[in-house]
Design a protein around this nucleic acid. Structure first.
Lengths: 234, 234
DNA sequence: CCAGCTGTCAAACGATTGATTTAATTCTGC
DNA sequence: GCAGAATTAAATCAATCGTTTGACAGCTGG
């Protein structure tokens, strides 16, 4: 029945993790019960509590399994870029590349489909992004601060809060694109095509790079707030 | 205890809806039980089933209550813009304004805080964005197709799939920003400031406008895929 | 005045949840 | 081949879930 169950050679613990990842990916963390997981893994109901102490323990492991490597690879890539370029600012596109490329690295470490992996990542950073285990959160915050500095350096003259907000918008585009790629296909009636992973990455980097450094070469553009251009009868 | 419970003059049905909205907003649709809602509304457990037939019925009503007005106001605003400008393409910024401005209109129709309202909207379009009631989905798809055409007209020469993907990235930035504004505050250590709603809207429009029309004034920029600039030891 | 409807109530329903235990079994490493 | 770890089926636990029931109060229209 399941793609995971039946591989009795693989250790139960591993099968449980993989089954949980798949279920979490396409149903969300909340809608999946311990019994769903153990059934899909072809294991006993007690297995989750035996191996992970509790359902929460399994969730924590699934969360940490990829988020930490992704964040650490992000930092390593940013380090490499800065080391390579010396003291000069790293171009926005390359910082963005360091930010998203780790996903394509880590998807190969997993047993999941590309599609499912990105869905899982999207759910993690989106939905469950608030209840991260402390170890994961520490690395996460460090990573964010390092990238904030890198972006600020790449866009001199931009206020710190502006940089943070652009990072937030950028991250939102990334998370939503990862988690709901299929939604686009459904809503566009197939007109969104079937791009490769690399094409999608390219689209993301170009879109967000333009957004990040917007106004940089147009210094007269200040915080001019935009009112509604068309008055509306409400 | 609750801001909603106790207003015994307000009809129970209304109190249930408002309590549900608040709870759904800051806990998500899945984590809220019928008893949570009725308790907060100061009503009996059976009230939800009496007034809405089921929990699902209440969810559907909450979903339709704002999504439909928002989408219809979007369409009306886009209509107004196109009528005003004649046959010429509407500038990207103004299309974007028509896309997000309705939220600021509808937030005043609700009993919710700005913060809670946007959180609820974010959750709707994000998490629950797949199981929309059919009536809501119809309007939604119509709206999306109209905006796709408007964006395509504003950015001539851009392929249809590119337009769809940029809309997807733009919508992601919007949804994530709405749903997780507090997350930014926490992760930035307060360095993201306390912008007004109008400032945030301005930031969003400028960010996504740059992303949407990126490459438009730079015609030599094609689909050149970006490989990793720095080889990495994984 | 009372029949009829609506809203509300406490109480209980059956189902499912995560967790735990027991005891028997299988696997694995030394 | 033995010891210990891993895994199993089965049963149980308290808690919570969405839903249902039947009774009761308040009101309205005739």
């Amino acid at each position: 029945m399941s793609a995971v169950a039946g591989d009795s050679k693989v250790a139960t613990k591993q099968r449980l993790i993989e089954a949980a990842e798949e279920l979490f990916a396409d149903e969300g963390f909340d809608r999946v019960s311990v019994r769903d997981i153990t059934t899909k893994a072809g294991a006993n109901v007690a297995a989750v509590n035996y191996h992970f102490g509790s359902r929460e323990g399994l969730v924590a492991i699934v969360l940490a399994r990829y988020i930490n490597p992704v964040n650490e690879e992000r930092l390593a890539r940013l380090d490499a870029l800065e080391r390579k370029i010396g003291g000069k600012p790293v171009p926005v596109e390359e910082v963005l590349e360091a930010f998203v490329r780790p996903f394509t690295t880590q998807v190969r470490r997993s047993e999941l489909t590309e599609k499912l992996f990105f869905k899982l990542m999207g759910r993690m950073f989106g939905q469950e992004g608030c209840n991260l285990p402390p170890v994961v959160e520490t690395v996460f915050v460090n990573m964010l601060n390092r990238f904030q500095k890198a972006f600020a350096k790449a866009m001199p003259g931009l206020a710190a809060d502006d940089v943070w907000w652009r990072i937030h918008l950028m991250a939102g585009a990334m998370i939503h694109t990862m988690a709901h790629a299929d939604t686009l296909q459904r809503f566009s009636g197939g007109d969104s095509g079937s791009p490769t992973l690399e094409q999608t990455l390219s689209r993301f980097i170009r879109f967000t790079a333009a957004g990040m450094r917007q106004g940089a070469d147009d210094p007269h553009e200040g915080e001019k707030p935009r009112g509604p251009q068309v008055e509306f009868p409400f």
